[in-house]
Design a protein around this nucleic acid. Structure first.
Length: 279
DNA sequence: ATGACTCCAACGTGGAGA
């Protein structure tokens, strides 16, 4: 089963990239963020295109900002929108949707940005993450939490740690909140697969940041142990960030072995993929 | 360089993103 997560920065604007990408990569499950569409508009825009491709969809959006969705070819059961107990800003925002797809509980999340450390929005971000942790703690064993977490897990996940001092995405409280999710037993499967590599998922549109590979890794796939043990590939689809009209985020793609227990030991990367120099 | 780009609602321009 192929699972992907992609902050598309507007489904409407990304249609010329999203549909060819679905055909090219053929993911079974797609978690989308920043759809920026109300649910009726999402349905009107995508219903036919998704049906042609065999996808069901669970969208949770609003008119202007935010918005998440899950597309699935392998079932879409027990859809839940939002995070129980999470604060709003001040009203609840469309930042999470969950569904069971192919036997795995899948979350598509768009964590609040935080804007400026110690701001109200920053406090909102931390409180939202704490509520997410509490909900995930009650989830089933086979779990995937996918999305834009708006936190770089470590300094290796930003192109220049010094440039981010005093900014959100790298502060200790944010990283502790992310660690609290991982302490539930969730693995960061891309970093597990590429432990020493320069891997980013977001590059600012400005100043040729993508061309220079000056980015951040803030889009994650977190997997519970049983699912992490089934990972056979985990990578960032940089091709989708190239060319005309891209999102500022690239998709993350993860392939899972079909074995239900998946316990065939750790995955060892090929020699060519190890210890490459950074930069 | 307090920049650089893109998106949304709305039709001019400010907020948000990260």
């Amino acid at each position: 089963m192929r699972v992907a997560t992609w902050n598309v920065n507007s489904v409407k604007q990304r249609m010329p990239r999203l549909l060819p990408w679905l055909d090219q990569r053929a993911p079974d499950v797609v978690c989308l963020q920043e759809t920026k569409l109300a649910d009726d508009a999402f349905d009107a825009l995508l219903r036919d295109a998704l049906a042609e491709r065999g996808y069901q969809a669970a969208a949770h959006g609003e008119g202007r900002w935010n918005g998440v969705a899950i597309l699935s070819k392998v079932g879409l059961a027990d859809v839940v929108t939002g995070v129980a107990g999470a604060p709003g800003f001040p009203h609840p925002e469309a930042r999470a949707v969950a569904a069971t797809c192919g036997g795995v509980r899948v979350y598509s999340v768009y964590v609040p940005n935080g804007r400026v450390p110690d701001s109200d929005h920053y406090a909102y971000k931390l409180a939202w993450l704490a509520a997410l942790r509490d909900v995930l703690a009650g989830e089933r064993e086979d779990l995937l939490v996918c999305g834009d977490v708006n936190i770089a897990p470590t300094d290796a996940d930003v192109f220049d740690p010094a440039a981010y001092v005093g900014h959100t995405h790298v502060t200790e409280p944010e990283r502790r909140a992310l660690t609290a999710l991982q302490d539930l037993g969730l693995r960061d499967v891309v970093r597990d697969r590429w432990p020493d590599e320069r891997v980013f998922t977001y590059w600012d549109y400005r100043a040729g940041r993508f061309h220079q590979d000056l980015g951040m890794r803030i889009d994650l796939v977190l997997a519970s142990g049983a699912v992490a043990g089934r990972v056979r590939a985990a990578w960032v689809d940089r091709h989708a960030r190239k060319g005309a009209g891209p999102s500022d985020h690239a998709p993350v793609i993860v392939d899972l072995d079909t074995a239900p227990d998946g316990d065939i030991g750790p995955v060892v990367p090929p020699p060519s993929a190890r210890k490459l120099p950074r930069g």
